[in-house]
Structures are given as structure tokens and as C-alpha cells.
Design a protein around this nucleic acid. Structure first.
Lengths: 149, 149
DNA sequence: TAGTTATTGAAAATGGTTTCCATTATCATT
DNA sequence: AATGATAATGGAAACCATTTTCAATAACTA
């Protein structure tokens, strides 16, 4: 556990953004927790450490972090957006299985290499054909988890 | 253009649902229009033919049709759900390119066969490993369209 | 250390979707 | 074709995640 400035500080400076306490705590929460937090959940978690935090700030910061590419924003169809770390230590590229009954989300990394290769190959061709600059993709499987089927 | 009862009537009977005017018109609108209508847009379109329609009914019917598998519900990230026919004549399996700047949605069918084969192969294995019954998948590419890049 | 200005937080506004409930329409049965 | 049980409808209000507004505060620069 080496100390030193957290890995994201330089990223903020680079963008010209200020490194504030709320932002650091939100990032910290996201980097510790397992996954897929909603804005409300992030708010709750940050609140324990920094009670003065406002929900508004959480929303703004999550948008900022997503725009910076540090986190990813997902919509799993339950009416609220969810966020998870995409960069930095401890994060790993993965896709999702989403239970349409209980809402459970299963991360899987099986086939990820194959998938990424396949998708980027397709992306490249689509990019050319439609003159479309692809930033990201989303692949998710919907169905029933073992408890709900 | 053969007459006869629309292809979906039997589907309704089968489910024990009543075949009402609002439902028929909503389905008709969806089967005529090009694509990706929001509930509001469906409401507007139905209104021209059947002014007494209520927005509530549109939402309820869209949910019903989605549940019946006749239409698919998508969230492209612009804050409203969108619906399109998945079954019946004139519909074709496809995936989407979504412009994160202007919101434009491009349907593509290139590689569809390869994609479906690849995804169902993956799906089959995931299904087994996680004991998860997969109903549908969603694959979408996000980026900038030719006008926005 | 002071000044500029990005950032914050509370409250109110927004907007898509859902709930409530009295009225209406569909369909099986007569 | 008329009846009755009940599914379906539509308008208003409720919901709830997210966004906007704006005065107060904090971060960085000079």
C-alpha cells in the first residue's frame, strides 16, 4: 500500500478541474465499493464520511467523472443510472447479465477478450461505412437469474 | 395487400387480452412508422387517428406489447424510453449506433448474422455458468455521427 | 495573503412515468 | 341481440430521478 498522491489527481489537474473534497470522497467511495452504485447510493455512502455533501454535487461530480472517462454510466432499465469505475487499479473490463425480475446485476469477464476483439472489428467497419466515430459500446444480456427463474 | 385479421389478433387472444381500439391503433402506428418512437411520440401519432387516447393508456399498452414480445423497449440515454416493433412483417433484426451529441440513432444490419451467432454462443455458455436464463441482449455503439464529429 | 472564479448545497423546477379511481368498453354467456 | 362480469381506459394527481437556480463558499493563481 504505497502512499503518495492518489492516481487521479494528475487527471484533474490536466483537465483544469479543481481537486475538491467532495470529488475526492466520491471517487474514493467508487473505488472502494464493489459496483454499480446509483447516485443516491453514492450520496448515502459519501454522507457517512462527509455529512455536508449535497445530492446535487453527487450528480454533478458523477457526470464530470464520466465525462473524464474515470467512471462509466449505465442504465440497466430500473429507472436510475448506475456508475462504476472504469479506470484505475482494481477495475477490469467486463459486461453484464441483468435480471429483469429482481434487478440483480452479474458482472462477467468470460470471453471479454473475444468480445472486445469481435466488437472492435465490427466497430471499425461500421465506423467507416457510416462515418461514425465510435467512443464506447454496451453489451448486456437480460433475463432471469438463478433465484428468479 | 391481403386483408384478413391483422397478424397480432391471435396473439392477444392467446394471452387472454382484449382487443381494444387503442391497442390496435398503437400497434398500427408502430408497424407503420419507421422507428424508435417515444411514448410521447406514439401518443401524438395515435391522437391524430383517435383523439380520445390518453397518455396513460399509451404507456400501459407499450408495456403490455413489450411484455408480449411484440415490441422492444430501448433506452438510448436521452431520458426517455423508445419502442420499436420486433416481430411481424417489415421488422428486421438490427442493432444501433447512437450519437451522443445529437441523439441520432442509426440502425444497422451489417454483421447481424455474425453478431447473433457470436452472442448466442456466448449467451449459451454464460447461461450455463451462471444458471441465468437469457431472454434478450442489447448491443449498442455510442459515439459521434457524421454531422457531429 | 488576496482576489478571481470554479464549486458547492438547498430549494425549487422539470419531465418522464406510474398510480388512483370512477367511467367505459369488450367478450363470454344468455 | 341483450346482459353481466370484469378488463381496459383516461384524466388528475402522485412519484421520483435528475436538473436548474442562485447565493455562499472554497480552491487555486498571482
Amino acid at each position: 500500500m504505497p502512499g503518495g498522491p492518489p492516481w487521479w489527481q494528475r487527471r484533474f489537474k490536466g483537465y483544469g478541474y479543481r481537486l475538491t473534497l467532495p470529488r475526492q470522497i466520491i471517487l474514493d467511495v467508487l473505488s472502494r465499493t464493489s459496483r454499480h452504485l446509483s447516485a443516491e447510493e453514492v450520496y448515502m455512502a459519501v454522507r457517512r464520511i462527509y455529512p455536508a455533501i449535497g445530492l446535487t454535487t453527487v450528480y454533478r461530480t458523477l457526470d464530470l467523472l464520466a465525462q473524464m472517462g474515470l467512471i462509466s454510466k449505465f442504465d440497466f432499465g430500473d429507472g436510475r443510472n448506475r456508475y462504476e469505475l472504469t479506470a484505475g487499479p482494481g477495475s477490469e473490463h467486463h459486461h453484464h447479465l441483468i435480471c429483469i425480475s429482481c434487478g440483480r446485476i452479474i458482472d462477467y469477464t468470460d470471453f471479454i477478450d473475444d468480445e472486445v476483439e469481435f466488437l472492435s472489428m465490427i466497430g471499425k467497419t461500421l465506423s467507416k461505412k457510416y462515418n461514425f466515430k465510435i467512443n464506447t459500446h454496451q453489451l448486456q444480456f437480460y433475463g432471469l437469474c438463478d433465484k428468479c427463474r
